[in-house]
Design a protein around this nucleic acid. Structure first.
Lengths: 195, 195
DNA sequence: GTCTATAGGGTGATAGAC
DNA sequence: GTCTATCACCCTATAGAC
C-alpha cells in the first residue's frame, strides 16, 4: 500500500516526545507551548494531537516512561550476594543511569507539580518503589551489622538526594570522568552508612 | 498630610512579594499570572506595576533577597574554633534556615532557568559564595587531618544536595522533630567526611 | 497524517481617569 | 496608588479540507 503524502506516523511520534523532553527540561513544562514543540519537530501544532490527547498526557507519558525504564534497568542488574557490594552497585547504577538521560531525570524531579492529582499519584508510587529498593539494601546491612543507620528511610532519601546532586554540575568532558565521579560518591555513601 | 484614598504603599509591596512567593513556589513562575498575584493581594493587575518593573523583577528580587538573607544569617553565626564544630554548625544551620522558609528555597532551586542571563549570573554568584563557605570548612578539616575528603568541591556540593533533600519530605508535626532531623543528617555528614 | 483556520480564552504591560 | 479599559499578542484544542 502506497504511502499517503505527508504520512510519517512511525517516526513523528518519537520525534514529538524527544522534542518535548528537551524543551520541557530546558524551559519548564509551563513555559513551553505546543507550537514550540511542533516547530522543533517540523509540523504544525494541530498535528501533535494525532499522537497525544493533550499537553498533560505528553508530560505524563515522558515521566511514566522514565520511571518504568529506571525500575526495569535496576531490576535487570545482576546483584552480588554481599550487601556492601549491592550498595555500591546501587550508587554506581543511579549515577550512571541518570547522567545518561539528564533531561528525563530533570523533568521527573521538576515537573511533579504540573501533573494532575491522579498522574502525580501514579508517578509518586513508582518513585517510592525505587526508594524502597535502596532502603531494602540499607535494612539488610543493618540486620547484618554492616551498616550503622538509625533511620533507614531517611538515609535512603538522603543518599538519593546526594546522588541526584551530580546532575546539577556534571558536564561531559569536565574535570572528572564518570567513573571518577561514581567512585567519589561511593566513597562518601559508604562512609555515611558505616560505623 | 492626609492619606489619599486607596493609598497603601507601605503594606501593598510586601504583600505582593509574599503572594508571588507562595504562588511561584506552589505552581511555578511560568504558570502564575500577574492577575493571579493581584487577585491574591486584593488589587487589580495594573496596580502591581507600582511596585515592580515587570514579572521578571518580581522573581529576581525574591531570589536575590533569599540569597542575601542566607549569606547574612550564616555570617552572623558565632562559630566555634574547632573545625568539626564548624561543620556541625553548618549542617544544623542549613537545615533549620531552609526549613523555616521552604517557599523561598524552593524558588531559589527550581526557577533558575526562568531568570534572564544577567539575573542568573548574579544569583549563581551568591550560591557559589555560599558553597565556598562549606568548602572552606572542609579544606580546613583536611589540612588538620580531621577529614578524609579526596575532592572538597564535590564533597561540598554533595553535602548541600543531601541537606536540601530534607525539604522534599519534611512536614511540621511529622514523625521527626527538627532537632532529630538535624541530628540524623549531622550523623551522616560527619561520617561521610571522616576516615 | 498533516494542513489551514478558528474558537474561546488567556497573557504581560500600559494609558489615563480619579 | 488604584482603578478600568485596552493593546497586541499568545495559548490549547478542535474542525474540516486535502
Amino acid at each position: 500500500m502506497a504511502r499517503t503524502q505527508g504520512s510519517h506516523s512511525d517516526i513523528t511520534g518519537p520525534r514529538i516526545r524527544a522534542a518535548a523532553q528537551e524543551l520541557f527540561a530546558r524551559h519548564g513544562y509551563a513555559a513551553v507551548s505546543m507550537r514550540q514543540i511542533a516547530g522543533a519537530v517540523g509540523v504544525q501544532a494541530g498535528a501533535l494531537y494525532n499522537y497525544t490527547a493533550d499537553k498533560q498526557s505528553l508530560l505524563f507519558d515522558l515521566m511514566q516512561a522514565h520511571m518504568e525504564g529506571l525500575l526495569t534497568a535496576w531490576a535487570a542488574e545482576d546483584l552480588p550476594e554481599d550487601v556492601m557490594g549491592q550498595l555500591e552497585r546501587f550508587v554506581r547504577f543511579h549515577i550512571r543511569y541518570n547522567l545518561e538521560r539528564p533531561d528525563a531525570v530533570f523533568i521527573a524531579y521538576m515537573e511533579l507539580r504540573n501533573l494532575t492529582d491522579e498522574n502525580f499519584a501514579r508517578i509518586e508510587e513508582r518513585r517510592r518503589t525505587y526508594e524502597d529498593q535502596l532502603e531494602g539494601i540499607l535494612k539488610a546491612g543493618v540486620t547484618q551489622g554492616l551498616f550503622q543507620v538509625p533511620d533507614t528511610k531517611i538515609a535512603a532519601l538522603a543518599v538519593i538526594a546526594m546522588l541526584n546532586g551530580v546532575l546539577t554540575w556534571y558536564r561531559d568532558g569536565g574535570r572528572l570522568s564518570l567513573v571518577e565521579v561514581e567512585t567519589l560518591y561511593w566513597d562518601m555513601v559508604r562512609k555515611s552508612v558505616g560505623v
